[in-house]
Lab assay of single mutants.
Amino acid sequence: EPELVFKVRVRTKDGRELEIEVSAEDLEKLLEALPDIEEVEIEEVEP
């Protein structure tokens, strides 16, 4: 069974934007590691 992958769009407080694809596990780590995120948009990517 393929692992869930999420497309994550992040905007930081200083206005930088970042778009990455991460696994569910990595997404959890990412959110814990970035306390200064202003906006996060997450969508599931079809395998």
Rank of each mutant, 00 (worst) to 15 (best):
P35I: 15
L18W: 15
V5K: 12
P47T: 11
G15K: 02
R11H: 04
K29L: 07
A33H: 08
E38I: 13
R11D: 00
E21M: 15
P47S: 09
R9E: 00
I42T: 03
V10S: 00
V45N: 06
T12D: 03
E21V: 15
E46V: 12
A24Q: 07
E41N: 09
S23Q: 05
E41I: 13
E43G: 07
E19V: 14
V5C: 13
L18C: 13
K13F: 05
E19L: 14
L4T: 08
V45T: 07
E19W: 15
E43W: 15
L18V: 07
E28D: 08
T12G: 04
I42V: 07
E38Y: 14
E19H: 12
E19P: 00
E41W: 15
K13L: 08
L27Y: 04
S23F: 07
F6C: 05
E39R: 12
E1L: 12
E32S: 12
E41C: 13
D26M: 10
E3G: 10
E39W: 15
V5G: 03
D36S: 05
V10F: 15
E41F: 13
R11N: 01
E21S: 08
E46M: 12
E44S: 11
E21D: 05
L31S: 02
V22H: 00
A24D: 02
L18Q: 04
L30E: 01
E38Q: 08
L34C: 11
D26V: 05
L4N: 04
V45S: 07
I20S: 01
V22I: 08
V45A: 07
R16Q: 07
V8D: 00
E44G: 09
D14V: 02
I37M: 06
V40H: 03
R11E: 01
K7S: 01
P2S: 07
E38W: 14
E17I: 15
S23V: 05
E1F: 13
K29G: 05
K7G: 00
L34I: 12
L18R: 04
V8L: 07
A33C: 14
A24V: 07
T12N: 03
R9N: 01
V8W: 03
D14I: 02
L18G: 01
A33P: 01
E43I: 15
D36H: 06
P47L: 11
E3T: 11
E28Q: 14
E25Y: 15
R16N: 05
D26C: 11
K29M: 07
A24C: 10
E28A: 13
A33E: 09
E25A: 13
L4M: 08
L27W: 05
T12P: 00
V5Q: 06
E38S: 10
I42D: 02
V22D: 00
A24M: 11
L30Y: 08
E46R: 14
V45I: 12
P35E: 14
V45K: 08
K29C: 08
P47R: 13
D14W: 08
A24N: 04
E46W: 14
L18Y: 15
K7N: 03
L30M: 07
E25R: 14
E39L: 15
V45C: 08
L18D: 01
E41Q: 10
R16I: 07
K13P: 04
D36A: 05
I20E: 01
E19K: 09
I20K: 02
I20P: 00
L27Q: 00
A33W: 13
E28T: 09
E3Y: 12
D14T: 05
E3H: 10
E38M: 12
K29N: 05
P35Y: 14
E44A: 13
V5W: 13
R16H: 07
D36L: 05
V8Y: 03
V10E: 00
E32M: 13
V22C: 11
E19I: 15
L30N: 01
T12S: 03
E17N: 09
S23C: 07
V5N: 06
L27N: 00
T12E: 01
E44C: 14
L4K: 15
F6G: 00
P47V: 11
I37W: 13
V40E: 02
E17Y: 15
V45F: 08
E19G: 02
E32K: 12
V8P: 00
V5Y: 11
V22A: 04
R16V: 08
V40D: 02
G15P: 00
F6K: 03
E25S: 13
E41T: 13
A33Q: 09
E38C: 10
E17T: 15
T12F: 15
A24I: 08
E3C: 15
V45Y: 08
G15H: 02
E1C: 14
E1T: 11
I37Y: 14
I37V: 10
L18M: 09
V8E: 00
G15M: 02
L34P: 01
F6L: 08
E21Y: 15
E1W: 12
R11P: 01
P35L: 14
S23T: 11
E41Y: 14
E3S: 09
K29Q: 06
T12M: 15
L4W: 09
I20R: 03
L27S: 00
L18P: 00
E25V: 10
V22L: 08
L27H: 01
E17A: 07
P47M: 11
V10A: 03
L31F: 06
E1H: 12
I42M: 05
V8C: 10
R16F: 08
S23I: 06
K7H: 07
P47Q: 10
V45H: 07
E41P: 02
D26S: 06
L34F: 12
K7D: 00
L4I: 10
S23M: 07
D26R: 06
F6H: 03
L4E: 03
G15E: 01
E32G: 09
D14G: 06
D14M: 06
E39H: 12
E44N: 08
P2A: 09
L30W: 11
E19D: 05
R16G: 04
D26A: 08
P47N: 10
D26H: 07
R9A: 00
E28L: 13
P2K: 10
P2E: 05
E3P: 11
I42K: 03
V10G: 02
I37H: 09
R11W: 06
V5D: 01
F6T: 02
L27A: 01
L4A: 06
V22Q: 00
L31G: 01
R9C: 09
P47K: 11
D36R: 04
D14R: 04
K29D: 04
A24F: 10
E44R: 13
I20W: 14
L4H: 08
D14Y: 07
E41H: 12
P2L: 08
I20M: 10
S23D: 04
E32P: 02
E21R: 12
K13V: 05
L30S: 02
I37P: 04
I37G: 06
R11M: 05
V45L: 11
P2V: 08
E46L: 13
